[in-house]
Design a protein around this nucleic acid. Structure first.
Lengths: 141, 141
DNA sequence: ACTAAATAGTTGCTTAGCTAACTAATTTCA
DNA sequence: TGAAATTAGTTAGCTAAGCAACTATTTAGT
């Protein structure tokens, strides 16, 4: 049976969480995806960060970050300026509109997290973290 | 910190497993994706299954299954025939080439599974399954 | 100083997930 | 029986991941 397979369950859970989160955002009329929120949040927490660093923090590749940054820029949530020190780099910063969105999103994201992890004991939260890290480490070797 | 977040870890682990699996398939010269293998496997195990049922088993939507089935058909791994009882439905079956591929894939998939779950105790495997199910159930309510 | 290598970012192509809208066939039920 | 609803599958449009190839700038090494 495929659907008892651990990978299947991990992948399915990830999809379900994204889907649930996306629906919650939509129901609040938020014009961002969960992934875009992750990028926005990183930029908010790291003033003048560049795209490579965003990618490192979110473990995503350059093209993916490039495209998401462009979307956020188009929607006026962030500002993208070429670095004066090193003109290969960009410096990303959050706009006023972006800050407002972050504030609006904060409780919504908390609610999403809370819902998914509802009824999980501290033990279980710790446990799943440890197991997922083990799986990732297995794949690195 | 985003990357200590449980959802982030689940999603990242799923991505890592897919990537690892994809590389293993590629290194064996297999012209299938992990997801396509899932579909092929379901068809192999359920002779004359239709696409809706494949979608139910893999928890994927109709368009996704439709495309993957077409890819598998193009690559001659499966045969797609309209059902004679109900001409809205198709009947999917595996071709000889498909069966051969399944046989070839079997040990490779086992290796991928084994690698990811290496060093996990039975207890941990049971545990992650339970926790992931809890999370999914939380989101359903 | 000048070439070669490394780095940051972009573009293009493919697969997959999700939604919505659509066609065609089948069921329902009044 | 015939209109309305349901079902199976497809198509189209969007986002995102992954890969490869590319440009432009910066850094290293001789």
């Amino acid at each position: 049976m495929i659907n008892t397979n651990t990978y299947f369950q991990i992948e399915l859970t990830a999809r379900r969480i994204r889907q649930y989160g996306q629906n919650v955002l939509k129901s609040h009329g938020i014009d961002l995806t969960i992934e875009q929120w992750l990028v926005l949040n990183v930029i908010n927490e790291n003033e003048l960060i560049n795209q490579i660093r965003v990618g490192e923090l979110l473990v995503k590749d350059k093209p993916t970050i490039s495209r998401m940054v462009n979307q956020l820029e188009q929607k006026k949530y962030i500002i993208k300026t070429p670095s004066s020190n090193d003109s290969r780099k960009v410096e990303l910063s959050i706009s006023k509109k972006g800050k407002k969105m972050i504030d609006e999103l904060y409780p919504i994201i908390e609610k999403i997290r809370f819902t998914g992890l509802n009824k999980l004991s501290e033990n279980e939260k710790e446990s799943i973290k440890t197991i997922l890290e083990k799986i990732q480490k297995n794949l690195d070797d």
